[in-house]
Design a protein around this nucleic acid. Structure first.
Lengths: 339, 339
DNA sequence: CCGAGCTCTGTTAGCGCTAACGTCACGGGA
DNA sequence: TCCCGTGACGTTAGCGCTAACAGAGCTCGG
């Protein structure tokens, strides 16, 4: 044990000393500055891995004003949709050389989202992605710190920020039209919870198709995205089995609940009632019967949102906010049949 | 437009000037230092929100050597298990005042995990959680940067770091014993992919119970956790319907695949074959039939891992590494019945 | 043959904070 | 009265990096 018992990690100056150059030259090597002699470069490199040196990005961020870190605020990343979106975001960010700092909210409201954004701002993120599926949460984007690049995912469409989302209305249209094309007189709808933008969009698309076709519009049943709520809705629907022949359910998990309820009540799918879901979770294909549904490309949403955000960050300017829409895709499987 | 067109965000010195104190006093207010007069404190606070000042945690981290950020490296956070674990981690960390920086690997191997750890170390995280469900990945923990606090989740049990995991062997025991208690002669097993520690643990527990009971041990079918692979296994099993009366499937998604295959082949569950899954994903309760399974408390795993990690960080010392085990829970539903 | 213009490297001055120490006023015990 | 402890600040010196400039040695054209 010499005098340096304190094994503090090596810093740039240590590398410089060992390589016999100035610390600035080390910095130049690390940042691929062109004006460094090849011989000097290798000498520095040798010193670097001899000492096991790693540069301190915190110090770097302090002077460059760029942390190369992006903030993500999301809600319940346990759900398939948010989880997939965040995954897409993280992948795209890392491919572009950015880190991702995540805050996932337990309950989502304006204050919570605001706090989260505040924390991330203090932490020095270069930009923020807000996965804001609820109206109340999306509004928090109105009071972003000045000059903070940001993008909303599945969010509100008329704020000061760009928005990337799947076209929910179109998805609902596809689902509803499919059912009508099959000869069903009308289509019932089990919706997501109020205040969720996705739920609203799906109701809108469903209603629009029925209206355009001049069909009666049944009252909607409201769920909370969970299989259990779908199960409850299924029981209700089964009770009116004669009247109901087609149901568009706002997500696959609730559709599973319906399927279960119908099985219990002896209602045959698709013989008596046809069902269309939404999301295309990996399980849907193996439901009994396999679920006809609308696929959302969450990965694409994540990637696109990072594209938009990075363009904003790297231009250094407040670009005009755009609205990017990812098309949904109809997936035909066994839960729907002609009347 | 005055001379200060450049609207750079306010810094501590700006607050100090406005409040008529030194920047150090501002710092003291921000850090709740006791020796500040109440009147001074309020004056500073007023200046702070008059300017909309937010402190720069990057600068703070540079001098304190603590970023209050934790790194998490995980694999495919789209899957229910990892997603839930990461969610638990994030919640626990934030409750303790820490941020979470995530790296999710596309493919998991030693080099990838090592790189991820390296990035996080450069970024100045105070500690790292590695969700390392595969043997190869778990080994990357052997070459952590010196002095970096770390904890492995669902990982290898004999490294230099603490490990938190659900007791997979015990879970498999519960599943297998249940089936034997029901009067089945033996139990087949559809396992997870090789190299996955969870898959190994479940095989071990299953085999141990059969061995102890002196029952024949059928060859295992191997899946990849996906419903599709379960479906394939189900087709095989259905072909030998007479011989097979009970199957323990290594996760719920594959169990869903089996269910589907059995439905197609006209094999009745649980009348002809009983099935037990693993995980208790939210959907399981609504499968047809509802799935008997083993619940893993991923949230608890996440929370415990943060406990261990923070204890390490805050003690500032290399504590003896421990092995924390979260008990699994048996959940009886409709997919199993007496022979 | 000389200065303009390169390439390569070193020196200096911060980035925005906190730690450590210095200073000053006050107050109470001998 | 003096002394010293203590509360409430201010001042200074970095943390580990990069940007900006400085300077030394070289090439090359007129």
């Amino acid at each position: 044990m010499g005098p340096n018992v304190e094994r503090r990690p090596p810093v740039m100056a240590d590398v410089a000393r060992l390589a016999g150059v100035s610390h600035q030259t080390v910095s130049r090597v690390l940042n691929d500055h062109p004006n460094v002699r090849a011989e000097t470069r290798t000498r520095v490199m040798r010193a670097i891995d001899q000492l096991g040196y790693r540069r301190n990005l915190v110090a770097r961020a302090l002077v460059t004003k760029h942390s190369r870190t992006l903030g993500v605020v999301s809600f319940d990343t346990t759900l398939y949709g948010p989880a997939s979106t965040v995954y897409g975001i993280e992948q795209a960010a890392r491919d572009a050389g950015y880190f991702v700092s995540i805050v996932s909210l337990r309950t989502i409201d304006r204050a919570g989202v605001n706090d989260a954004i505040g924390y991330l701002a203090e932490q020095g993120v270069d930009g923020i992605v807000v996965v804001a599926p609820q109206r109340s949460a999306a509004r928090a984007l109105d009071d972003l710190p000045a000059g903070m690049p940001a993008v909303a995912v599945e969010g509100w469409h008329q704020g000061e920020v760009s928005v990337v989302s799947v076209d929910q209305v179109e998805g609902a249209r596809l689902a509803t039209s499919h059912l009508l094309d099959l000869g069903h007189e009308t289509v019932w709808h089990v919706s997501g919870p109020a205040d969720w933008l996705e739920a609203e969009g799906r109701i809108e698309g469903w209603r629009a198709v029925l209206t355009a076709a001049g069909r009666p519009i049944p009252g909607t049943l409201t769920g909370d995205w969970s299989p259990r709520s779908g199960y409850r809705a299924g029981k209700e629907l089964a009770a009116m089995a004669g009247d109901v022949t087609a149901v568009f359910v706002a997500n696959d998990q609730m559709a599973l609940g319906l399927l279960r309820a119908f099985t219990e009540e002896g209602v045959k799918v698709p013989e008596q009632i046809s069902i269309v879901g939404f999301d295309d979770i990996p399980e849907s294909e193996f439901f009994s019967p396999p679920l006809t549904t609308i696929r959302q490309d969450f990965g694409a949403v994540g990637r696109r949102s990072i594209d938009v955000l990075l363009r904003q960050i790297e231009s250094g300017e407040a670009l005009p906010h755009e609205r990017l829409v990812v098309p949904p895709q109809f997936v035909f499987r066994g839960s729907t049949a002609a009347r």
